[in-house]
């Protein structure tokens, strides 16, 4: 699963899905994660970057990242790797 590549993300956390016409907002940590996901970074790389920058432990980030991805999946912002 990866982020659909036509998703538009602005610097202030506004997310637009041109395929569905839906818009979303993300908070700053969500924006950082979303941008890394769009670049195709691995889960472990993302977790490592976050704990480097923020005052938080790895297992919490991992749990939150999975939850975040699950929300993105529910909002149909993710696609299968072969799509």
């Amino acid at each position: 699963m990866k982020i659909k590549n036509n998703i538009a993300v602005s610097d202030n956390g506004f997310v637009f899905n041109p395929g569905s016409g839906e818009s979303f907002t993300v908070n700053p940590v969500g924006l950082v994660m979303l941008n890394m996901l769009r670049k195709g970074l691995s889960q472990s790389k993302i977790v490592a970057t976050i704990i480097e920058e923020y005052n938080i432990d790895a297992s919490s980030v991992e749990r939150d990242l999975n939850d975040f991805k699950e929300m993105m999946r529910q909002y149909r912002l993710m696609q299968h790797d072969d799509e």
């Binding site: 602005s10 202030n12 956390g13 506004f14 637009f16 818009s23 907002t25």
Partner: peptide, 11 residues
């Protein structure tokens, strides 16, 4: 423009 909607929605 979507920018305007974005502006009112985020700010």
């Amino acid at each position: 423009d979507l920018k305007e909607f974005e502006q009112i929605s985020t700010h």
